[in-house]
Design a protein around this nucleic acid. Structure first.
Lengths: 366, 366
DNA sequence: AATAAAAGTGTGTGCGCACACATTAAAAAG
DNA sequence: CTTTTTAATGTGTGCGCACACACTTTTATT
């Protein structure tokens, strides 16, 4: 516990034989500074390795930035969308003293009207930046254009709209992700069998992402090295309700008894796993997202692999990106692909513990 | 960009009809405060949801904490130990304004004397806390006891000494890690073949960790579900030099031609991969750590899986943990196991980009 | 040469907090 | 009922910075 030995503006001022104000002018190249003093100051800054104290700066500025998040609501704390929300919350806590304020607006994935409503509410809040999960294609585009007109910067998480002018996209490269799913699935499959992709969609969520996923997955089985080259079927179910899924699976499996591996393109792999358990089917499963139910089925062996797109990190990084953008004026990378984490029973617990439950969860006590 | 709407001590003071000084006394329960005022103040704090501004607090306190790190030196920027160092640097940059100062002391993994020397230097620096990679068992214990006597808290990264009183251990659970290695290796192996564990050790680094690794790895093959149950050999090479390794491998493979899978317990899997390439051997490989050479061999297919213990995160988390400990007086968890990340060719790039090269790398410009 | 207008520079205040100090009220001692 | 002691409370300063303002030089204008 030592006393401060930091270089301050005053130190630089003394060293350059000018006043603090001049240092300030040089740093922000505001106002008039004579050439010789400017040079002296720059020299002093270099020599002393002066680095402005971000704390003091933030305090003095007293500026606040309002970041509004428009993401799907999470019906329960174990729902997928509670994870990005958690990441956002963590980052918000971390940066709150720096003037970052966040406000969440939740919409219902299956209710376009709710998106429209909430996006209007969001605009009313007059944000400085927006974090958006653009899962409803059409509505998202309209909304984004409004942001564009209002000059409000925005970042996408989870899904990208490559044609739009977002500051950044933070999320997976779904094609590679699905390719990996193929590789993992194949590694636990016998040489000869058939494979199924299961889509569950209500409405027209993000059809293009689904297509890229399918393409990525298929491309693994189209290469004919070792024992790949398996028939790949697709089953699309217009619901995520258990009874609907079970009915459709039953029908499909009856017609295709050679299916030995299934790839589920959303976070509902556990439903398929339940079905397999019920009918004592020995079928291997790869799915997405570490939601509570998938965790359970990973543990009991019903699911072989889960690919996780670090949803918590996505939320966190979105806020960090905007923070850097505002405070450091740092232009972010247009695309920030998240890791494609391979989760199996054995590394599950470590992953969850380290990534989800980590601190900085605001401490209000002292 | 809004003006501040934060609750300050002054707000609380007005609301409770007392002066700022009294609020301060209540918050830090320092000095004398009458019962009724204390209650009023506490009520006001609750009602206004007052939260002290960490920035202002840090600024006012002007305290500095010196964290000294004693870790192996990295001969090149792609060496394994440059990664924890990077994490430390990142976290140090993040927290520098909060008064966290870090200083690094590097020792040579294969030179006990260097450890002793550097640990003495470190103590001279009079640190408030220490981050230690206790890879030299004996010397580390001696050193840690000195810290203990001096009342200096410390955390371990990468390896644990469970008997010591460290604030926290941040690193892998090696047994599970090796078990996963077994599972992954087996997934790319034919039903019938033999398996090899390769240890490369100079001196007696951390024999116990090696043993736990072996045990974890073996335990996978001792379960007799599907097609496990393979003979597991061990080859220990007292060197990491290419010629030594090649010679030993050649000798061993001649005697054991049925080897089809190898598990390398340190970060030198690429050496074995090179050997395989040279002799056109079709042998599958699992190893540790995303060092540059392993990355290359993952890409060219010579290595099938790399398990990564998030070395960058380890360094980062170590500093974060100490920061929370000092600033928030938060007692950390004794064990913080890092994720056991499974890296294959296809998720490699995403992993590296996202985890290693992320910003907050100090900005020294203006 | 006298004045006006820039250009260049220094000073002072406040951000929210911690802490030393000054002040006042109440209790103990005489 | 004073005087001391002690408990209770208020005030003022500084942390490092940004920014408004006042001030002093130059330079341009007539």
């Amino acid at each position: 516990m030592k006393r401060n030995l930091k270089i301050t503006i005053q130190d630089v001022a003394r060293h350059a034989n000018v006043s603090a104000g001049t240092i300030d002018r040089v740093i922000h190249n505001r106002g008039k500074v004579s050439a010789d003093k400017r040079i002296k100051v720059e020299k002093a800054i270099r020599e002393l390795n002066f680095n402005p104290n971000l704390l003091a700066r933030t305090l003095a500025l007293g500026k606040n930035f309002l970041i509004c998040n428009l993401v799907p609501g999470a019906p329960s704390p174990h729902h997928y969308w509670s994870m990005p929300a958690r990441g956002i919350k963590m980052a918000a806590a971390q940066y709150k003293d720096y003037g970052i304020i966040t406000e969440n607006f939740y919409y219902d994935l299956f209710d376009e009207a709710s998106f429209v409503r909430q996006s209007a509410n969001l605009l009313n809040a007059n944000p400085d930046a927006v974090v958006l999960a653009p899962l409803l294609l059409h509505e998202s585009k309209l909304f984004v254009h409004k942001l564009q007109n209002a000059g409000i910067p925005y970042v996408f998480i989870d899904a990208d709209l490559p044609d739009e002018q977002s500051l950044s996209y933070i999320g997976p490269e779904v094609k590679s992700s699905a390719f990996i799913a193929g590789r993992l699935l194949n590694s636990v499959l016998p040489g000869k069998c058939e494979i199924l992709i299961v889509n569950m969609v209500k409405g027209f969520a993000n059809a293009s992402a689904l297509q890229r996923m399918e393409a990525g997955f298929r491309s693994y089985f189209q290469q004919n090295e070792p024992p790949r080259q398996k028939p790949v079927h697709v089953l699309t179910i217009n619901s995520t309700k258990k009874e609907d899924v079970f009915r459709e699976l039953e029908r499909f499996y009856n017609e295709h008894p050679a299916i030995k591996g299934v790839f589920i393109t959303n976070s509902k792999a556990f439903l398929v796993s339940e079905f397999h358990a019920l009918h004592k089917l020995d079928i291997r499963l790869v799915g997405y997202d570490l939601v509570e139910e998938n965790i359970a089925h990973l543990k009991n062996g019903g699911i072989d692999f889960i690919i996780s797109h670090s949803p918590v990190q996505q939320g966190k990084r979105a806020i960090q990106t905007l923070f850097d953008y505002f405070v450091f004026k740092k232009e972010p990378e247009r695309i920030q692909h998240v890791p494609l984490d391979i989760i199996i029973r054995e590394n599950l617990d470590f992953y969850i513990r380290f990534n989800q439950h980590y601190p900085n969860e605001l401490k209000e006590e002292y």
